[in-house]
Design a protein around this nucleic acid. Structure first.
Length: 600
RNA sequence: GAUCCCGUAGCUCAACUGGAUAGAGCAACUGCCUUCUAAGCAGUAGGUUGCGCGUUCGAGUCGCGCCGGGAUCACCA
């Protein structure tokens, strides 16, 4: 049971078991659940587990416990027993009292309900982490949306969160686009070509691959073996040479590298802005890739790692069920994981209060992070248990996997553009643009398009692989972002109509309809939903919650007149209820990075 | 080959971590705008939860074995 009164009833039930059956059960081992809607009641206790103590039938046990709880809880209206299920109805007064609180100040209720956590619960979320050799694609979009939303949810749950990005700005793959531009670019720039910087650089990354393939094909035609041709192709040798020069700080190469990276960053900034993501701090791999060697040496001295005859350094993780892993090459240079060891150490040095370091990285790197965590356990770092890989599934297309070589990658910028245009078309077709100036209309299209996209991606459990169907992602009906946004705008419209009629708050005397009670119940669940979503690091829980709430509100809206001149108290109640729902929807959407338009 | 993840309605996803008759949306069909936004509401239809054993009062959920899909197993990142 996620509700707070679950706690109240757990303690009481524990006492009941002691009184009635002389059995000691820890209240935390007891759980209540929501009553299914086909039965009457609010919360349900499954009594089967207790029959072995009561030595009575499930029905009789439920009766006994129900009578006890009913007498002693002070919250119980009545109860009924169906088979082994004890259904308890909570008094309307309880719901109305809670509602009075949130109608008075929902914001405080939300924050008061989260555990008080100070700077000692600082968390760091690393996400996005792009390569600077090509533009962002759909896979990055899922990463960015998850990283942003998880960060916001953790903040809402009372943590201090530092959002960081680790930009992969160096390495062979970066040199490939640099080399191709140098050889074939003829000085092309974003300005001269009109191309967005990251797309321009991406173009040369692709071009490198093409040219290399051509060269290899030529060599093979001349009689060389495929493998030798790949090694001996002048392009791949030049790339290696360029990387060596980069690492040797060669002025010309560094200058080219800086120039092209600056193009990419400008392009990324635009995409990030459209996605609504931001970072508190950006790490660059060019500045961190050498970190970690010291840790390797330390581990070597401590006997946690070992050196092979050729000079390479390894860690043996067999006792953790993993393999051996290389940490330093035989020439002494560092590999990918060495860098990650260094940055992790750096971050815990920089932020001594850091409780958790959360990596938002795709599940193809599950093994990598298992290794990283085991390494730090072996090094006996106190914070090793604070490393957490938030592993998310790949994004598939209806046509199958995204493959950059086959050109089936969905480009992030293109996607954003199309989805915004689609929102524009629908909005115009529905004729909803009275009194909008151009700027407001443009913002609305963007908010709706991004609302559709973000909700579509975030409503799926992060752990699961998901299918991205472009046609469905722009859908605005049913279980979609715009449906929830629409509900918000609709409430805003009602509130405008009832302006000035919210002040009468003597709700105690009101009887409430099932639809109204359902709404209060759902509102009541929100703080616990935030906690649960934070613990699971799952924006999907927030998305599903927002949908449930919007759906319940539309049901209520359909069945009841809100602004009723004949009944001021009821009007005030329903307006307050509507306002609370609007606030909660807006809050939940914000946790997903989605904005709620005032009208649409 | 080894290890890990996933199989729920035609499609996309839920199912409060072992509880009642497995729920939503899309697509299909049927109703509801003279009343606060119809991007809405209500209804019909759609299931042997991949298959088989087992654990127990109870299994989509836990265990074992198959079948199918994916990922990882570089001195790449």
């Amino acid at each position: 049971m996620k509700n707070r009164f679950g706690h109240h009833f757990r303690a009481l039930l524990s006492e009941a078991l002691k009184q009635l059956y002389s059995t000691d059960i820890n209240p935390n081992d007891i759980s209540f659940q929501e009553t299914k809607k086909e039965f009457s009641g609010d919360i349900t206790l499954v009594v089967f587990p207790f029959t072995k103590f009561s030595k009575k039938s499930p029905e009789q046990t439920a009766q006994d416990l129900g009578a006890y709880l009913s007498e002693n809880s002070g919250l119980t209206e009545n109860f009924n027993v169906v088979k082994g299920f004890l259904n308890i109805s909570i008094k309307n007064e309880f719901w109305l009292a809670y509602f009075k609180d949130i109608a008075h100040d929902l914001k405080s209720v939300l924050t008061d309900d989260q555990p008080k956590q100070g700077a000692e619960s600082t968390l760091m979320v690393e996400y996005s982490s792009p390569n600077t050799n090509k533009p962002l694609h759909l896979g990055h979009v899922r990463n960015n949306l998850l990283g942003l939303s998880v960060s916001k949810i953790l903040k809402a749950a009372g943590h201090k969160v530092i959002m960081v990005n680790l930009v992969n700005d160096r390495g062979v793959h970066i040199c490939k686009s640099m080399l191709a531009w140098q050889k074939f670019g003829k000085g092309e720039t974003p300005e001269s070509s009109g191309l967005k910087g990251d797309h321009l650089v991406g173009k040369y990354y692709v071009l490198y691959d093409q040219k290399l393939k051509e060269e290899i094909a030529g060599l093979v035609k001349e009689g060389m073996q495929q493998e030798d041709a790949e090694k001996n192709a002048s392009l791949s040798q030049e790339v290696q040479e360029m990387l060596r020069k980069w690492e040797a700080n060669d002025a010309e190469v560094i200058s080219l590298w800086k120039k092209m990276n600056s193009w990419v960053y400008k392009g990324f900034d635009e995409t990030y802005k459209n996605l609504g993501v931001s970072f508190d701090k950006i790490y660059y791999e060019s500045e961190t890739y050498l970190l970690g060697k010291k840790i390797v040496n330390e581990g070597l001295e401590a006997g946690a790692f070992y050196k092979k005859d050729d000079g390479s350094v390894w860690v043996d993780l067999a006792d953790a069920g993993l393999d051996q892993k290389v940490l330093l090459r035989s020439d002494g240079t560092s590999v990918y994981i060495t860098q990650d060891m260094g940055t992790a150490q750096l971050r815990f040095d920089e932020y001594p209060n850091l409780q958790k370091l959360i990596y938002v990285v795709g599940n193809e790197q599950d093994y990598h992070f298992k290794v990283l965590i085991e390494i730090f356990k072996k090094l006996k770092r106190s914070w090793a248990g604070g490393l957490h890989h938030l592993s998310y599934g790949m994004v598939d297309l209806p046509s199958g996997k995204m493959k950059s070589r086959e050109g089936t990658v969905v480009d992030a910028d293109e996607l954003i553009k199309e989805i915004t245009e689609s929102a524009e078309m629908t909005t115009k077709a529905l004729g909803k643009l009275d009194n909008y100036d151009d700027a407001a209309a443009k913002k609305l299209y963007h908010d709706l398009g991004m609302g559709a996209l973000k909700y579509f991606i975030l409503k799926v459990d992060p752990k699961k692989r998901m299918l991205f169907n472009p046609a469905e992602s722009i859908d605005l009906n049913g279980n979609t972002g715009p449906f929830i946004q629409y509900t918000y705008a609709r409430i805003k419209s009602v509130l405008a109509k009832g302006a000035g009629q919210l002040d009468n708050k003597a709700f105690e005397s009101l009887s409430i309809s099932p639809e109204e009670k359902a709404l209060i119940r759902i509102l009541y669940d929100y703080p616990a939903t935030i906690r649960s979503a934070a613990e699971a690091m799952s924006p999907a829980q927030i998305a599903n919650y927002a949908y449930e709430l919007a759906k319940a509100y539309n049901h209520f809206y359909h069945d009841h007149i809100i602004v009723d001149s004949a009944d001021g108290l009821r009007t005030s109640f329903r307006l307050n209820l509507s306002q609370s729902v609007a606030f909660t929807i807006q809050h939940a959407l914000d946790l997903l990075g989605i904005s709620a338009p005032e009208r649409m």
